[in-house]
Design a protein around this nucleic acid. Structure first.
Lengths: 123, 123
DNA sequence: GTCGTTGCAAAGCGTTTGCAGCCTA
DNA sequence: TAGGCTGCAAACGCTTTGCAACGAC
């Protein structure tokens, strides 16, 4: 059974407040504002528990550590800022990509990542 | 200056023969057919040298180790088989994704990854 | 012979695990 | 009080680096 602890509350609060996918390190830094003694191992364990609860989902981007965001979002994609390294949600999706799939292959899902500069980093 | 050694030839041969992106471990296993004593560190160093030469390019996919393929390919995307974990090239591209970009953001590039079963793994 | 290259082993780095003590229920 | 939770440190897997021996030129 799950217990309600300061540490796990701090982890959830950090993810709710961010509104964008966070890496374990980003979660640690944000949550230490609430619980300064928080350790990185606790973040990893808390994240895993929240994933198993279905409260969080993984956001894996190429060449970057896994990030996590709340699971209450519809299908969407991500924008990765090459300057500040933050990741933002993209609401739209161009829809089916079945026409790209080679003959004989079975398409199950897809991921689209946009790269560039976010509004804070664009000149 | 670059010297021509058995090890680097074996690494290039493995990548040319594969025709799809390979991970360092896959390169090692393929190239050891030619040079059995080959070590993984040499693969990493050889890959880095080939990247700097512009002969290779990185293929980074979410949650997977970096893979490498020859740089003489046009813009394209990838299909990642969830059964055998191999990665295949997709020739097509749906084109501009500018309409997905949030206001104020500057789009520079994009990546599309398809997931499913390759022709060898599909039932 | 020079000096870039190689293989091994050790070091890094992000993530996971073992364990004794802590704290929620 | 019982047993899940935490922080620390050690363990892990992948990648990089230090170093002495090797070999291309």
């Amino acid at each position: 059974m799950q217990r309600k602890t300061q540490q796990r509350s701090a982890i959830r609060d950090a993810l709710e407040a961010a509104g964008r996918p966070l890496s374990p390190q980003e979660i640690l830094e944000a949550a230490q504002g609430e619980v300064p003694s928080l350790g990185i191992a606790t973040v990893y364990r808390g994240v895993r528990a929240l994933l198993e609860d279905g409260w969080l989902q993984v956001v894996d981007l190429p060449g970057a550590p896994s990030r996590y965001e709340m699971a209450d979002k519809d299908h969407h994609h991500h924008f990765h800022c090459r300057s500040c390294d933050s990741v933002f949600d993209i609401e739209d999706c161009p829809g089916s990509l079945k026409e790209l799939t080679p003959r004989g292959f079975r398409l199950e899902s897809h991921e689209i990542i946009l790269y560039g500069l976010c509004s804070g980093c664009a000149p």
